[in-house]
């Protein structure tokens, strides 16, 4: 079915070509701007420390790199119970002393 999609695209492009589509850069001033947000990515895997990464989102038009946050307080809760504060490793990375455990399947 992928092929069919390709055909459709091909035809649409042919149409656009036929009718001479034109491109124009437009001012995106009225793009609904939003405050940057904190973004937390975290990975928990078996037998390795829990890792997290903290960064800021950026405007869709921004060409800059993502701002990585090294001075965040990254706390780990297990079942709503405070357990520890993750340690920063630069580049927005944090790591715990605990390691991921496999839980028995419950179904």
């Amino acid at each position: 079915m992928k092929k069919n999609k390709v055909y459709i695209l091909y035809f649409l492009l042919a149409m656009a070509f036929l009718f001479g589509a034109c491109r124009k850069i437009i001012d995106a001033k009225d793009l609904p701007e939003q405050d940057v947000r904190l973004v937390l990515n975290s990975v928990i895997s078996k037998d390795s420390s829990i890792k997290a990464n903290v960064s800021l989102s950026k405007s869709i038009l921004s060409g800059k790199d993502y701002k990585l946050i090294d001075n965040a307080t990254c706390e780990l809760y297990i079942n709503d119970q405070y357990t520890e504060t993750l340690v920063n490793f630069k580049n927005g990375n944090y790591q715990s002393t605990l390691k991921g455990k496999a839980t028995p399947n419950t179904h």
């Binding site: 793009l31 609904p32 701007e33 939003q34 940057v36 947000r37 973004v39 990515n41 975290s42 990975v43 895997s45 078996k46 390795s48 890792k51 990464n53 960064s55 989102s57 950026k58 405007s59 869709i60 921004s62 790199d65 993502y66 990585l68 490793f89 630069k90 580049n91 927005g92 990375n93």
Partner: peptide, 28 residues
């Protein structure tokens, strides 16, 4: 239209890389 982008965790061999490789678009 997406208004912002943010990083996604990129994981290789169970290790999360600090380097950011992918953008996720955020629609308000």
């Amino acid at each position: 239209l997406p208004v912002q982008t943010y990083t996604a965790a990129s994981v290789i061999n169970n290790t999360m890389l600090g380097a950011i490789t992918s953008d996720v678009q955020y629609y308000s």
